[in-house]
Simulated assay, not measured.
Amino acid sequence: MAHVFTKLLSLLFILIHLGCFIIFPTVVHRRHRPKTTRKLLKPHKTLSTTWTYIKHIFSSKPTSQTDTISIIHHAPPSPASSTRSLRNSAINGSLTEPDSFPIRTDIHPCPNCGEIFQKPGLLEQHQAFKHAVSELFDDEPGKNIVRIIFQTGWPGTAKTPMIYRVMKIHNSVNILTRFEEYRETVKSKAERYGRDERCIADGNELLRFHCATFLCDLGQNGNSGICSHQYCSVCGIIRVGFSSKMDGISTYSTSWKGHEAFPDDIEEEFKFMHVKRAMLVCRVIAGRVGCDPGTRDKDDPGYDSLVGREDEELIIFNPRAVLPSFVIAYTV
């Protein structure tokens, strides 16, 4: 009996010992668990966080390390990350908030001088006045070509012209557009009536000369601008084209004929105004050339230009048909 009693007592001691490990730690854990820990370990928030993290892992859009940490800890992104996101949104043009960074689309710099304008029209007006011409220098092949074209046709008995400046004209967009639109008009009319093939091809474009005067220092010392003086004929032609009030624009096949048709004493007579002579090298849309002025009709003359008193003179009735390309300042 004593042996059996000893075994039962040992078993009871073991059970009591095991009960201390099972019961007392649980009681102590419940007694000393902080309230904040119990709040953070709510099942629904833990599951929500886990599910959000899983969705971001398996989404097609890659998630950066910074975003992953933010998802796990429910913390806002860092200031650097916010600044980077705003910069990327501004570049892509996706910012729509009132305090977003504005994208400047109203800046139009001049490619010649770098001056900034807020409207394209102001930039075009600036270029038409300040960068209308540019001087061609001796080392440029274009100057020699223009010089040869100018000197061709001068007779040996005439005084040799002295060229002291050759300038290229930078026509405005409006003048170039009007010139090309008139070319298309001439081509369409030639196709409709089955006229000259040259008119159908390019409007019968020719290279002609027109002599005029100017008062300012056009192209001198690198000056690329034009003046607004009402009596400066060359600057007025460059700025707005030939006047529509003229009863035809006289153009000539050689610069000699253009020079001869201009009064010889014009420079001496207006010397007090510092009048200087210049030759304009022009592209002309001659179209269909007429020979008899009596056949001209006001509404439909049947031709676009007319041969003048001399064979080398060609009178152009539409100012859009004449495009000045070079200015040659010279004297005899």
Rank of each mutant, 00 (worst) to 15 (best):
212 A>H: 00
219 G>V: 08
94 S>E: 14
141 P>H: 03
51 W>K: 12
201 A>H: 12
313 E>L: 08
35 K>E: 00
292 D>V: 05
109 P>R: 09
89 S>C: 15
190 A>V: 13
11 L>P: 02
258 G>D: 06
200 I>Y: 03
228 S>P: 04
16 I>T: 12
149 I>H: 05
226 I>L: 02
30 R>A: 06
278 A>K: 13
328 I>T: 08
152 T>K: 06
146 V>N: 01
301 P>D: 10
76 P>C: 09
183 R>T: 11
30 R>Y: 13
309 R>H: 07
270 F>N: 05
257 K>F: 14
318 N>L: 00
226 I>P: 01
273 M>A: 10
15 L>G: 08
155 P>G: 05
332 V>P: 05
169 I>M: 10
325 S>Q: 04
153 G>N: 04
232 C>A: 04
230 Q>R: 10
327 V>P: 06
49 T>M: 01
323 L>G: 03
133 V>W: 00
278 A>S: 13
164 Y>L: 08
290 G>N: 12
174 N>R: 03
217 D>P: 04
157 T>Y: 08
233 S>Q: 13
40 L>T: 15
257 K>D: 10
135 E>M: 02
230 Q>E: 14
11 L>H: 02
75 A>M: 06
39 K>I: 00
270 F>W: 13
31 R>A: 08
250 S>P: 04
6 T>K: 13
37 T>L: 01
46 T>V: 06
149 I>S: 06
78 S>L: 09
118 Q>R: 15
193 Y>V: 14
77 P>N: 07
266 I>R: 14
79 P>T: 04
239 R>L: 04
76 P>I: 07
12 L>D: 07
22 I>E: 15
15 L>S: 07
313 E>R: 11
149 I>M: 09
41 L>R: 11
243 S>A: 05
40 L>K: 14
5 F>Y: 05
119 K>N: 08
262 F>G: 04
206 L>R: 15
30 R>I: 08
76 P>S: 10
45 K>I: 03
165 R>F: 06
234 V>A: 07
257 K>V: 04
299 D>F: 01
114 G>V: 03
163 I>D: 12
185 T>L: 06
228 S>M: 09
232 C>G: 09
85 S>D: 09
278 A>V: 11
144 N>W: 02
12 L>V: 14
150 F>R: 05
150 F>W: 04
188 S>R: 11
216 C>D: 15
222 G>P: 07
62 P>C: 12
134 S>G: 00
168 K>S: 06
255 S>T: 05
239 R>Q: 03
198 R>C: 11
168 K>N: 14
260 E>R: 03
72 I>Y: 10
264 D>M: 02
176 L>E: 02
66 T>Y: 04
35 K>G: 09
242 F>I: 00
283 R>P: 00
193 Y>L: 08
187 K>N: 06
140 E>M: 09
194 G>E: 07
126 H>M: 03
142 G>Y: 04
157 T>F: 12
131 H>V: 05
322 V>Q: 12
244 S>F: 01
92 N>A: 15
